[in-house]
Amino acid sequence: MKIAVCVKQIPDPATPYRLDPETHFVVRPDDQVLDDTDRYGIEVGLQLAEATGGTVVLVSMSPAGNLQGIRQALAMGADKAVVISDPTLRGSGALVTARVLAAAIKREEVDLVVAGTESTDGYAGVVPQQLAELLGMPALTFARKVEHLDGRLRIERQTAAGYDVVEAALPAVVSVTAGAVEPRYPTFKGIMQAKQKTVDQPTAAELGVDSVGAEGSGQKINEVRPAPERAAGRKVVDEGEAHLEIVKLLEQAKVV
């Protein structure tokens, strides 16, 4: 089975991000990291590839920066990567992202596309569904468990009430939640091999996608403003009696 895993490079979440005051786009540092939640999708892809003697290609749209995050992903064991790293993509919304990813995935002729349910920095949470529509595939979304049964995929789909077991034939898109699997750590050998692996870097135009970037996204940021702040509260260091403060407040709130 040939599997594409969509992974995103993002600014390191440990360092607070900035918005460009003029464009309101996120200022992207050169060194970006692999979105931590994508490790679950990679692990799902690798396990299915191992079980079926298949391959994993990473697909990523990265409007800026180097390939540090992609190398992290390759180090986990994926075979190669396609990275659309094109400055004209800056400011692209989710649909443009999905169009670019879909065009790259079509060239790879895969049986399965794996994505996360939402990215850490963008969290629009619609790219996998947009991809499925563009590729004419069913989307098995919010999967907390993924199984491959002879040309079909069966997942446990998280719902508000619990979960549903959902099935579809391949080719399909699956979006996986954190917690679906335990992602492996890259080995030293994996890290060394990642440096040699193929990383294709087509432009959006080469993939046949025009109307990209902020212009092509059909949306524009009007304003960025601070949210109304919550009044500062009281802090009490527990010296054995702090629970009484909670009881007092619960009484005031008429809970007890």
Binding site: A94, V127, Q129, Q130, A139, T141, F142, T159, A160, G218
Partner: peptide, 20 residues
């Protein structure tokens, strides 16, 4: 979940953005 699925697919089908 299902709302998001439909919004995403509809956005791609019509070629219009979705704000989430």
């Amino acid at each position: 979940p299902t709302d998001r699925d439909v919004a995403g697919r509809l956005s791609a089908r019509l070629g219009v953005p979705v704000l989430s």
